[in-house]
Simulated assay, not measured.
Amino acid sequence: MNSSIKGIATATLVLLLNYSANPGFALPQKINHPVSVAKSQPFTDTLIVPGERVGPITRATTRQDLVKLFGASHLLDKTISGAEGMGSFAATEVNLNQERSLLVVWSDNTRTKPLHVSNLGSAWKTREGIGVGTPLSELRKKLGNFKLYGLGWDYGGTILLDNSRLSSYEGKLILQVHTAANAAQKYPNDYRAVSGDRTLSSSNPHWKPLGIRLAEIIVLLNPSQ
């Protein structure tokens, strides 16, 4: 690994580890999204603006605001664990339909300051059209040839935005890709070739058979310093 790439990788990993070491970051939590809801939600703004907003949810949105935006019946408060089991903090699921659901993580139990939004359904997209489900080939068109962490550990599949076309989103957006179901069993050699705590190029040919797609978007709104 050359020195410039190593520096980028280290900076991104430090960012992730800093979030995991305090109540400002949690690894994606699995949410069982409801298949349908009684009524379609009236809002149509599903735009992600990294560092600023996720649709109507902004840096200043509170739990009470979520009630006004989505209705109390669609909210579920919970406490979730931080990355690598470090810490716990307040979160609120917004259960709409499968494509629009999300998770708001708060700075403390008052639920008045959102730290980040995650577990976004496929309807939520950036201005570039990036959303959950975007395949690796499309990500390369939008980001250029980027680096990402190898698979098989907590931060596996995390994209390094530095030196990509979306470098301005560094520190505001975290993108993580996953393989298709059973890809590790079907293509064990390819899976091993792109696994481990290291950085790899998105052009590595071993990614291709694994069915790589964007699986998690974390939008940082008020990250802890």
Rank of each mutant, 00 (worst) to 15 (best):
R53Y: 07
V54T: 07
V54I: 06
P56N: 09
R59V: 07
R59S: 01
R59G: 00
R59H: 04
A60D: 10
T62P: 01
T62D: 00
R63E: 09
Q64L: 10
Q64G: 13
Q64V: 13
D65E: 14
L66P: 04
L66M: 04
V67D: 14
K68T: 12
K68S: 14
K68Y: 11
L69G: 01
F70Q: 09
F70E: 06
G71D: 00
A72C: 01
S73Q: 13
H74I: 08
H74S: 14
H74W: 06
H74V: 12
L75F: 02
L75G: 01
L76E: 15
D77F: 03
D77C: 03
D77W: 02
K78P: 11
K78G: 12
T79V: 14
I80C: 13
G82P: 00
G82L: 03
G82Y: 08
G82A: 06
A83E: 04
A83F: 10
A83N: 10
E84M: 10
E84L: 11
E84I: 12
E84P: 01
E84S: 14
G85H: 08
M86C: 08
S88D: 08
S88C: 12
F89A: 11
A90S: 13
A90E: 09
T92Y: 07
T92W: 05
T92S: 13
E93P: 13
V94W: 06
N95R: 12
N95P: 02
N95E: 13
L96K: 07
L96H: 06
L96F: 04
N97F: 03
N97E: 07
Q98F: 07
E99P: 02
E99K: 09
E99V: 02
R100L: 02
S101G: 06
L102P: 03
L102D: 07
L102G: 08
L103N: 11
V104I: 11
V104Y: 01
V105S: 08
V105A: 11
W106E: 02
D108E: 00
D108H: 00
D108T: 01
D108P: 09
N109Q: 15
R111F: 02
R111S: 03
R111K: 06
R111H: 01
T112G: 05
K113G: 00
K113Q: 03
P114G: 02
L115E: 12
L115P: 01
H116T: 13
H116A: 07
H116P: 04
H116D: 14
V117W: 02
N119P: 06
N119W: 10
L120C: 11
L120F: 05
G121H: 01
S122F: 00
K125W: 10
K125Y: 08
T126V: 12
T126G: 12
T126A: 10
R127A: 15
R127N: 09
G129R: 15
I130Q: 08
I130D: 11
G131A: 15
G131R: 15
V132N: 08
G133W: 03
G133V: 00
G133S: 09
G133N: 04
T134R: 09
T134V: 13
T134S: 14
P135Q: 08
P135W: 02
L136A: 06
S137G: 08
E138L: 14
E138Y: 07
L139I: 00
L139H: 03
R140V: 10
R140W: 02
R140Y: 05
